[in-house]
Simulated assay, not measured.
Amino acid sequence: MHDKNETPPMNENKFISFTISGQTFCVDIMAVREIRGWAKPTPIPHSPSYVCGVINLRGTVLPIVDLGARLGMPSTDPTPSNVTIVVQIGDQLIGLVVEAVSDTLSLKDSILQPTPEIASETSKAFFKSLVALEGNMIRVIDLTTLAPAAQMSAAA
């Protein structure tokens, strides 16, 4: 039986999932502009340790971020098998270095769970939600927390 006060079905969101250090993460597919093979970036002096450098993407200077290092995990030692996910965060394009892109996921709002209260404030800031799917715990990354420029404009 259906309750008359039952809420209508939740929206379905699409995500791109990928791995870092054997763990699964995902980002909103609407923020992904392209997925590229690894290209060695030009280092930028005095940049944060998680910034690998910049590359020329069809005339645009694209900062490349080691997503593992940005999330407080071990730094990725990029190889030709690594992938760069180009995402749009506000007005800024950023390349995120990951081990591999896994899948496209369609997830209903109802299975997206909040980050537990016992997580550190830093963890809660980076992750919008968690999803238990097929024996995996997948973290949904809040892209606005990744880029320093994006953080400052979000705080304004």
Rank of each mutant, 00 (worst) to 15 (best):
L96T: 04
S110E: 15
P78M: 13
C52T: 02
I111Q: 10
V51E: 00
L107Y: 14
L67Y: 08
I94Y: 00
M73E: 10
V32E: 10
T76Q: 01
T76R: 00
D28L: 12
C52G: 06
E34N: 05
H46T: 11
A132V: 15
A31D: 10
P74C: 03
E117L: 13
L96W: 02
I55H: 02
G95K: 06
T79R: 05
S120C: 08
V54Y: 03
L105A: 13
P80E: 13
V101E: 03
K108F: 15
G90V: 08
V98E: 05
V54F: 04
P116V: 07
V101Q: 00
P63L: 12
P63Y: 07
V98Q: 04
K124Q: 14
T84K: 02
S49Y: 00
E134C: 03
V27H: 08
I85G: 08
E117M: 12
V51K: 00
W38G: 12
E34W: 02
C52M: 14
V87H: 05
D28P: 05
R58D: 13
G68C: 07
D103A: 07
G72V: 01
V27A: 10
S123A: 14
I94T: 08
R33E: 15
S106R: 05
S47A: 15
H46D: 12
G95Q: 09
K40A: 07
M73V: 02
P114A: 15
T79L: 11
V97F: 09
D91L: 06
L62H: 05
V86T: 07
S110W: 12
L133G: 07
E99V: 03
T84D: 06
I55Q: 04
S120K: 02
A69M: 04
I55R: 01
E121W: 09
L93H: 01
V87M: 08
L57K: 08
I89H: 02
P41I: 11
F127A: 06
L71I: 04
V51N: 00
T104L: 12
F127P: 04
K108C: 15
P80L: 14
P45D: 13
A31E: 09
G37M: 11
S110H: 15
G68L: 06
V87S: 09
S49K: 00
M73L: 14
I85Q: 05
C52A: 14
Y50A: 12
A39Q: 09
Y50E: 13
S81M: 14
E99F: 01
A119D: 08
E34S: 11
T79Q: 07
W38V: 14
G95W: 07
S110A: 15
L105E: 13
T84Q: 06
A39C: 11
P116T: 05
S102W: 00
M30R: 08
N82V: 12
S129M: 07
L93N: 01
G68Q: 02
M30L: 15
R36G: 08
L62R: 05
E34M: 08
F25E: 13
T115I: 15
T122D: 03
D109E: 15
V87L: 09
G68A: 13
P116D: 09
V87T: 11
P63D: 10
D28R: 05
L62G: 12
A31R: 04
